[in-house]
Amino acid sequence: MSHPMKLAPIAMVLVGSLGLGGCATKSFVREQVATVNQRVDALDAKLQTTDGTAQQALAQAQSAAGQAQNNGQRLDQLNARVDGVEQQMREAKTKRARN
Protein backbone atom coordinates (compact mmCIF):
# COMPACT_ATOMS: atom_id res chain seq x y z
CA MET A 1 0.00 0.00 0.00
CA SER A 2 1.15 3.60 -0.69
CA HIS A 3 2.33 5.82 2.03
CA PRO A 4 0.39 9.07 2.39
CA MET A 5 3.65 10.95 2.74
CA LYS A 6 4.74 9.95 -0.79
CA LEU A 7 1.45 11.16 -2.32
CA ALA A 8 1.53 14.58 -0.64
CA PRO A 9 4.19 16.15 -2.95
CA ILE A 10 2.44 14.83 -6.02
CA ALA A 11 -0.89 16.21 -4.85
CA MET A 12 0.73 19.60 -4.15
CA VAL A 13 2.20 19.75 -7.68
CA LEU A 14 -1.17 18.89 -9.24
CA VAL A 15 -3.06 21.50 -7.20
CA GLY A 16 -0.41 24.13 -7.94
CA SER A 17 -0.41 23.50 -11.68
CA LEU A 18 -4.20 23.76 -11.83
CA GLY A 19 -4.17 27.05 -9.94
CA LEU A 20 -1.42 28.71 -12.00
CA GLY A 21 -2.35 27.94 -15.59
CA GLY A 22 -5.27 28.41 -17.91
CA CYS A 23 -6.46 32.01 -17.60
CA ALA A 24 -5.46 34.61 -20.17
CA THR A 25 -5.13 38.23 -19.17
CA LYS A 26 -7.34 40.90 -20.68
CA SER A 27 -4.37 42.56 -22.34
CA PHE A 28 -3.30 39.29 -23.96
CA VAL A 29 -6.79 38.72 -25.31
CA ARG A 30 -6.99 42.32 -26.56
CA GLU A 31 -3.65 41.94 -28.37
CA GLN A 32 -4.77 38.73 -30.03
CA VAL A 33 -8.13 40.20 -31.02
CA ALA A 34 -6.42 43.34 -32.35
CA THR A 35 -4.20 41.20 -34.58
CA VAL A 36 -7.20 39.32 -35.91
CA ASN A 37 -9.10 42.58 -36.42
CA GLN A 38 -6.21 44.00 -38.45
CA ARG A 39 -6.28 40.97 -40.69
CA VAL A 40 -10.04 41.19 -41.06
CA ASP A 41 -9.79 44.90 -41.91
CA ALA A 42 -7.13 44.19 -44.55
CA LEU A 43 -9.27 41.46 -46.09
CA ASP A 44 -12.31 43.72 -46.01
CA ALA A 45 -10.38 46.44 -47.86
CA LYS A 46 -9.29 43.91 -50.50
CA LEU A 47 -12.87 42.68 -50.79
CA GLN A 48 -14.15 46.22 -51.29
CA THR A 49 -11.55 46.80 -54.02
CA THR A 50 -12.43 43.52 -55.71
CA ASP A 51 -16.13 44.29 -55.47
CA GLY A 52 -15.56 47.71 -57.05
CA THR A 53 -13.62 46.13 -59.89
CA ALA A 54 -16.32 43.52 -60.40
CA GLN A 55 -19.05 46.16 -60.44
CA GLN A 56 -17.10 48.18 -63.02
CA ALA A 57 -16.58 45.08 -65.17
CA LEU A 58 -20.28 44.27 -64.93
CA ALA A 59 -21.23 47.77 -66.06
CA GLN A 60 -18.85 47.53 -69.02
CA ALA A 61 -20.18 44.11 -69.96
CA GLN A 62 -23.77 45.35 -69.82
CA SER A 63 -22.85 48.34 -71.97
CA ALA A 64 -21.12 46.07 -74.49
CA ALA A 65 -24.15 43.77 -74.55
CA GLY A 66 -26.42 46.73 -75.25
CA GLN A 67 -24.13 47.92 -78.04
CA ALA A 68 -24.02 44.41 -79.51
CA GLN A 69 -27.82 44.29 -79.48
CA ASN A 70 -27.99 47.66 -81.27
CA ASN A 71 -25.47 46.45 -83.83
CA GLY A 72 -27.52 43.31 -84.40
CA GLN A 73 -30.65 45.37 -85.01
CA ARG A 74 -28.78 47.59 -87.47
CA LEU A 75 -27.51 44.51 -89.31
CA ASP A 76 -31.05 43.16 -89.52
CA GLN A 77 -32.21 46.46 -91.03
CA LEU A 78 -29.36 46.48 -93.52
CA ASN A 79 -30.07 42.87 -94.50
CA ALA A 80 -33.68 43.79 -95.18
CA ARG A 81 -32.56 46.69 -97.37
CA VAL A 82 -30.09 44.48 -99.25
CA ASP A 83 -32.81 41.86 -99.75
CA GLY A 84 -35.07 44.58 -101.15
CA VAL A 85 -32.39 45.81 -103.55
CA GLU A 86 -31.69 42.24 -104.70
CA GLN A 87 -35.41 41.70 -105.32
CA GLN A 88 -35.58 44.89 -107.41
CA MET A 89 -32.54 43.78 -109.42
CA ARG A 90 -34.12 40.38 -110.13
CA GLU A 91 -37.35 42.04 -111.26
CA ALA A 92 -35.44 44.45 -113.50
CA LYS A 93 -33.46 41.57 -115.00
CA THR A 94 -36.64 39.61 -115.62
CA LYS A 95 -38.21 42.61 -117.40
CA ARG A 96 -35.14 43.04 -119.62
CA ALA A 97 -35.20 39.36 -120.50
CA ARG A 98 -38.82 39.66 -121.67
CA ASN A 99 -38.14 42.65 -123.88
Rank of each mutant, 00 (worst) to 15 (best):
A97G: 07
R39S: 14
A57T: 09
H3Q: 04
A59W: 02
A57L: 09
A68K: 11
Q56M: 03
G84L: 00
K95N: 06
V13C: 07
G72N: 05
M1E: 00
L7T: 02
A34I: 00
S2Q: 13
R96P: 13
M1N: 05
S63A: 12
Q60D: 15
K93R: 14
T94G: 14
K93E: 12
L58M: 08
D51C: 11
G21N: 08
Q67H: 01
V15S: 15
M12H: 12
L58V: 10
L47V: 02
T49R: 13
D83T: 06
S2F: 10
R39I: 03
A8P: 08
G21C: 12
L43D: 09
M5I: 05
S27K: 13
A59S: 09
P4F: 03
D44S: 07
Q62I: 04
G72F: 09
L78V: 10
M5Y: 01
G19N: 14
M5V: 08
Q88P: 00
C23M: 14
Q69M: 11
G16N: 15
M12A: 15
N37G: 05
T49Q: 15
R39K: 12
L58R: 08
N79A: 15
R74I: 10
Q67I: 03
N37Q: 14
Q48P: 08
K95Q: 10
M89T: 13
N70C: 06
Q48F: 06
A8V: 11
Q67A: 07
V33D: 00
A54N: 12
V36N: 08
G22L: 02
Q38T: 10
L7K: 00
S27L: 10
A11Y: 04
G16C: 06
G21F: 14
G66D: 02
A54C: 10
Q87I: 00
L7R: 00
E31I: 01
G19A: 13
L78P: 07
G52D: 01
A64V: 08
V40N: 05
R81Q: 13
Q62M: 01
A42T: 06
Q77L: 10
G19C: 15
Q32N: 14
E91Q: 06
A45I: 04
A24N: 06
S27Y: 06
T53S: 15
L47P: 00
C23W: 09
R74T: 14
A54G: 03
C23S: 09
A54I: 13
V33E: 02
S17V: 04
S63M: 05
G66H: 01
R90F: 01
A24L: 10
K26S: 07
T53K: 15
K93D: 08
R30E: 11
N70E: 15
K26D: 13
V29Q: 06
A24R: 03
T53G: 13
S17T: 11
S27W: 01
A11E: 00
A65T: 03
L18E: 02
Q69T: 04
F28R: 06
T25G: 04
C23H: 09
Q48M: 09
L75K: 06
D44E: 03
L75G: 05
Q77S: 11
P9C: 00
K26I: 10
T94C: 01
S2W: 07
D41A: 09
G19Y: 14
A59F: 04
L78Q: 07
